[in-house]
Amino acid sequence: MAQAFLAVVRRDLRIAFRRLSDLASPLMFFAIVITLFPLAISPEPAVLREIGPGVLWVAALLATLLALNTLFRSDFDDGSLEQLALSAHPLPLLVFGKILAHWLISGVPLVLLSPLLALSYDLSSNALQVLTLALLIGTPTLSLLGSVGAALTAGVRQAGGLLALLVLPLMLPVLVFGARATTLAAAEQEPAGPLYLLAALAALAVTLGPFATAAAVRVSLE
């Protein structure tokens, strides 16, 4: 069973590395959205420090959403998703492998890129650390929640807007706690409370998410 899980992870990683442009576009989107806000609001450091945590989190949410399009689409189109569903191994496990691979190629680079972009918002080094940690705990939850929506809309053409409508309300708690932890750290206060809540959400998403996604995959394959 572990072997099947690792095989799925390895396969998805290999496919992703052969199509680097798919991997790069959500990251570029993340960087561009973050560049837009100082231009639209104000380049004043005080203002940037104020809006920075929120802007970074909203941009991370939108970039995750953009990356979700590649999670099941091509596997659905070429039939390999159907083969996964037919295999003797439990589908939630295999789907979890796909989500893990997806997070490794879309979530982790985003986490690594974020402190660099946060520097441009004049956030303190303490805030940078908390932001990175919060994104590290929060992005898996985003990927897991998003995977349910991505699986439900795998067979739908032009699903982008619909996917946003399905997934963004579900991601709201992660945004609230993540942005709050970062804001607290930027104000030199203790961010542990919201970080624990983020971790609780991640635990819940890891335990329930793969089952919901597997059910959604089965519906899409009917």
């Binding site: 929640l145 349910v148 919901a212 519906v219 899409s220």
Partner: peptide, 24 residues
């Protein structure tokens, strides 16, 4: 079937969303 999966995911999430908004 698709909307049923969504409704059930939603019912698990709505209390969490509600309380996160209250907390916020």
């Amino acid at each position: 079937r698709a909307s049923a999966v969504l409704a059930i995911v939603g019912v698990v999430n709505l209390p969490i969303i509600h309380y996160s908004v209250v907390w916020w």
